[in-house]
Amino acid sequence: MRSTRLEMALDQGAFAPPAGDILVLRPRAGDDLSALSRDRVVVETGFRPDHDHFTAKGYRTTGGPFGSAVICLPRAKAAALALIHQAMASVPAGAPVLLDGQKTDGIDPAIKACREAGFDMGESLSKAHGKAICLTAAPAPAGWAAPPRAVEGGFVTLPFCFSADGPDRGSALLAAVLPDRLPAHVADLGAGWGYLARAILSRPGVQHLDLVEAEAQALDCARQNVPDPRAAFHWADATAFKPKHMWDAVVMNPPFHTGREAEPDLGIAFIRTAHRYLAPSGTLWLVANRHLPYDRTLTTLFRQIEDIGGDATFRLTRAALPIRSR
Results as ranks from 00 to 15, higher is better:
Leu10His: 06
Asp108Cys: 00
Thr55Val: 13
Ala87Cys: 10
Ala14Glu: 13
Arg48Lys: 15
Arg48Glu: 15
Ala78Met: 10
Arg26Val: 05
Phe54Ser: 01
Pro27Glu: 02
Arg75Trp: 09
Ala93Glu: 14
Phe66Ile: 03
Ser37Glu: 15
Ala56His: 08
Asp32Asn: 11
Arg48Phe: 14
Val70Met: 04
Val70Glu: 01
Arg28Phe: 06
Phe54Thr: 00
Ala82Asp: 05
Asp21Arg: 09
Gly64Val: 00
Ala29Thr: 10
Ala69Glu: 05
Phe15Gln: 06
Ala110Thr: 13
Leu99Asp: 02
Lys103Trp: 12
Ala78Cys: 07
Gly58Asp: 13
Arg40His: 11
Pro65Asn: 11
Asp32His: 07
Thr104Phe: 12
Gln12Met: 10
Ile71Gly: 02
Gly101His: 04
Ala110Gly: 09
Thr62Ile: 13
Ser68Gly: 11
Tyr59Leu: 10
Ser68Cys: 09
Arg75Ile: 02
Arg28Asn: 11
Phe15Thr: 05
Val70Tyr: 02
Asp50Pro: 06
Ala95Trp: 06
Asp39Lys: 15
Pro17Thr: 05
Lys57Met: 14
Ala69Ser: 14
Leu33Pro: 00
Ala16Met: 13
Pro49Ala: 02
Gly46Asp: 15
Asp39Gln: 14
Ala35Gln: 06
Ala19Ser: 14
Ala29His: 07
Phe54Asp: 00
Ile71Lys: 03
Leu10Ser: 05
Asp52Leu: 15
Leu36Asp: 09
Pro74His: 04
Leu99Met: 11
Arg28Thr: 09
Ser34Phe: 03
Pro17Cys: 04
Arg26Trp: 08
Pro109Ser: 10
Ile84Trp: 01
Leu98Gly: 03
Ile84Cys: 09
Arg26Thr: 11
Ala110Met: 14
Pro49Ile: 07
Ser37Cys: 10
Ile107Ala: 04
Gly30His: 06
His51Ser: 12
Gly30Asn: 06
Ala87Arg: 01
Pro27Asn: 06
Ala14Gly: 05
Ile71Asn: 01
Pro18His: 09
Asp52Ser: 13
Ala95Ser: 15
Pro96Cys: 11
Met88Ser: 14
Ala110His: 08
Val97Trp: 00
Leu33Phe: 00
Pro18Gln: 09
Ile22Gln: 08
Phe15Pro: 09
Phe66Gln: 07
Ala56Asp: 14
His85Ile: 03
Ile111Leu: 08
Leu99Cys: 01
Lys103Asp: 15
Ala56Arg: 13
Ala110Ser: 14
Leu10Gln: 06
Pro109Val: 07
Lys77Ile: 07
Val70Lys: 01
Met88Arg: 01
Ile84Gly: 05
Ala35Glu: 07
Leu10Thr: 05
Gln12Glu: 11
